[in-house]
Design a protein around this nucleic acid. Structure first.
Length: 355
DNA sequence: AAACCGGGGCA
DNA sequence: TGCCCAGGTTT
């Protein structure tokens, strides 16, 4: 395919984006962008980190919460770690929140509070990999970088009818995407391809009939669009079991522990637990008269299902736990818990409210 | 290169 | 249930 054909494709995509761009709070619409309105790099960076493996619908409220609590990178850099982790609770992949804070502090300490504009420097920042570096450079600074996410991989696999399964096909798909990236409006182009993948070239039931690229799409012509991209099969998820211990002190305080920085739910608040295994050994955080609940909390992580049995105890004011710390009733917010731990609270909430 | 790391929405 | 998602870090 010659340069002219590729230019025609990128032009068609930009025309489509001008009239079909999705509305997002952090995004500058194409008309405003053409009028010279620049995006806020802080808002773009925050959105891109939140959007890692996460849908736009899930990100919206969290982005608004963060920009309200911390309107700029200096405010975020000065925030308490626990406040940021609590605000992130429920969004998942908690290493992102820890790296978010690290990154904000590096930007303030080493870059004068201004985000770097080039891909290579962005790549040195915590939590920013090849995708996010390209996305920030393109979207925030309109640099001619090629942004390749799951949407773009799917669009390219279909445009060029590539049957090689992912992840092996990634280098080829990236090269195809790079060849299509225009020098004019690369930021809008990057967002346009992702919008196309999110709204037209969807994983299931792609709307080929209204696609701006339908005439040049090899998979649509071959009838294989809905079957692409192919992916190497993944093994199915095992189930692990655990025991969660909920201790309520006589004054209403609840016993929780801050999980280790690294690992599952790293740095988040949770109930003291046994290990999570096929047949977990009991590990109560203090000696007490523990009562087993009938209900179990069930939660699915990326790579395993978790079934948590729940033990409940009412303990005296002078109780001395071996692990964790008591959090006073007014200071305890279930919303600050990751979802697996909040499900445990939901099951015991009625039992610890009024006694 | 492969493993690890959440959560919700969808068919 | 299984698959999908605006991926990065660690091993």
């Amino acid at each position: 395919m010659g340069e002219t054909a590729l230019d025609d494709l990128s032009s068609a995509l930009l025309d489509w984006y001008d009239s079909h761009a999705r509305v997002m709070p952090w995004r500058v619409p194409p008309a405003d962008r053409k009028a010279g309105v620049a995006p806020d790099p802080y808002a773009i960076w925050l959105s891109e980190v939140m959007l890692q493996q996460t849908t736009v619908a899930a990100v919206r409220d969290y982005h608004r919460k963060f920009t309200t609590l911390w309107p700029n990178v200096r405010d975020l850099a000065a925030a308490d770690d626990a406040a940021v982790m609590a605000a992130w609770a429920g969004l998942g992949y908690y290493a992102r929140a820890r790296n978010l804070l690290k990154c904000a502090r590096v930007v303030v300490a080493d870059h004068g509070g201004a985000f770097p504009r080039d891909h290579a420097t962005l790549l040195t920042l915590p939590g920013i990999g090849p995708y996010t570096a390209a996305a920030i450079a393109a979207i925030a600074f309109d640099a001619p970088e090629t942004v390749v996410d799951g949407n773009v991989e799917r669009v390219m696999a279909r445009m060029f009818d590539i049957h090689t399964p992912l992840p092996a096909a990634k280098p080829d798909l990236t090269a195809r995407a790079r060849a299509l990236t225009p020098q004019q409006r690369p930021g809008d182009y990057a967002q346009g391809v992702m919008d196309l993948g999110a709204t037209i070239c969807t994983p299931r039931n792609p709307a080929c009939g209204i696609c701006p690229w339908r005439a040049g799409c090899a998979a649509r012509i071959a009838g294989s669009a809905a079957d692409l991209p192919r992916k190497t099969p993944k093994k199915k998820t095992p189930t692990r079991h655990g025991i969660a211990y909920v201790a309520r002190r006589a004054d209403g305080a609840m016993l929780l522990e801050t999980r280790p920085e690294s690992g599952l739910l790293g740095g988040m608040l949770g109930w003291p637990c046994s290990d999570w295994a096929d047949d977990p050994a009991p590990a109560p955080p203090l000696a007490a008269d523990w009562t087993a609940l009938d209900a179990q909390a069930r939660h699915t992580f990326t790579h395993f299902h978790l079934h948590l049995r729940i033990m409940l105890a009412h303990v005296p004011l002078d109780a001395q736990p071996e692990r964790g710390h008591f959090i006073a009733r007014p200071d305890f917010s279930p919303a600050a818990l990751p979802t697996a731990m909040r499900k445990v609270y939901d099951l015991v909430a009625d039992l610890v409210q009024n006694d």
